[in-house]
Design a protein around this nucleic acid. Structure first.
Lengths: 190, 190
DNA sequence: AAAAATATTGAACATGTGTATATTAACTAT
DNA sequence: ATAGTTAATATACACATGTTCAATATTTTT
């Protein structure tokens, strides 16, 4: 049994229409009705596929995040690991965000629901967890690792927020230099 | 010239109605129409005060954040400052969030727009900036301070996100212990 | 190629959104 | 207490939302 052609056609049509509309207005102003008119899809049909406009956008984002995941699983990763790799990992994140800048501009918009931020958070967090598991097996004192990982993950996302707010004008090289400096200040304070 | 009584009455009525409705359903499901019915306010009147339901909620949040700001400006702060203070500052944040847990549960909800998160981010960030200005005047290498501050600010918010996800079951003492441990690991990596 | 399965459509319905306007009511300043 | 000011109301309109259902069209299976 194969995937029904009509379903594919409907979804493609809606996703294509969304991309078109995004060129003219922000995501929050795009209505289901408008999307359906442009996609030539019955509104009732829309609701049998997605809950709202965000549903369509999320569909895209999942593809993007998948691309992110794969870029993270490249060969070198298996062979050697340690400190200099963390740097490489972070650069990977910067490259990813830059590559899909158009999307991340939307994701970091203040009108957009937290769900997309959390999707990014969870993805980066899972990478961070892997890295930590590899490196820091000596169970450090009585720490709850979840707090440590979320702390470090969101710290990185803080850089992305700052990058976003400055209109992505900082180059990736510069951004990376900043990160190295920040990490070298070791303790976040003093 | 004093503030018109009718305006105060309308806004109080709407805010009160919002609190009532929040006990029965999530913010995202509360409609302007419903709010106005309960508050006995004409819908047209609503729109001359607020843009949408979020406008009313934001009104509350601004009071909350103001309370936060003030708790941060308490006397001891002026007299002595240094490393052990950072710890005290962070505990302050934890206490604040715990105090208004009902609100932060909403703010961190994935359906809610980023704006509230950013409001918190900006507030914590301004505290962080003060702390840094006091302590770290020796302009460290060629760092762009904005990235450093956003990094550190969001790291703290990462702990709050984790706290939220675990249903605020971690006690403040425990949370503080975690933070100290995390900070003592100095470099976030290695 | 025909039959069976299922996705899409069109239409309707109750409710919400955002805006506009004339009328009424409440408040402020004198 | 009154006049002048301004906020709230009632009503209406065009459009959006989310759901339902019978009729139709398309796709898959046999």
């Amino acid at each position: 049994m194969k995937q029904d052609l009509r379903i594919i056609k409907t979804q493609d049509s809606l996703r294509h229409a969304l991309l078109t509309l995004l060129k003219t207005k922000p995501l929050e102003l795009i209505t289901v009705a408008e999307l359906c008119r442009l996609a030539k899809v019955n509104r009732g049909t829309f609701y049998s596929h997605y809950k709202d406009v965000h549903g369509v956008f999320k569909h895209y984002l999942e593809v993007i995040v998948e691309d992110f995941r794969q870029s993270y699983e490249e060969p070198y990763h298996k062979t050697n690991f340690h400190i200099q790799n963390i740097e490489a990992d972070m650069i990977r994140i910067f490259h990813h965000v830059k590559k899909y800048q158009d999307f991340y501009q939307i994701i970091f918009d203040e009108r957009i629901p937290m769900m997309y931020f959390y999707l990014l958070f969870d993805t980066v967090r899972s990478f961070m967890k892997e890295t930590l598991d590899e490196i820091e097996l000596q169970s450090e004192s009585n720490i709850q690792v979840d707090y440590l990982i979320s702390y470090q993950t969101n710290a990185i996302l803080g850089i992305l927020i700052e990058w976003h707010r400055q209109g992505y004008k900082t180059s990736i090289q510069e951004l990376n230099q900043q990160l190295i400096t920040i990490l070298s200040i070791n303790s976040p304070f003093r």
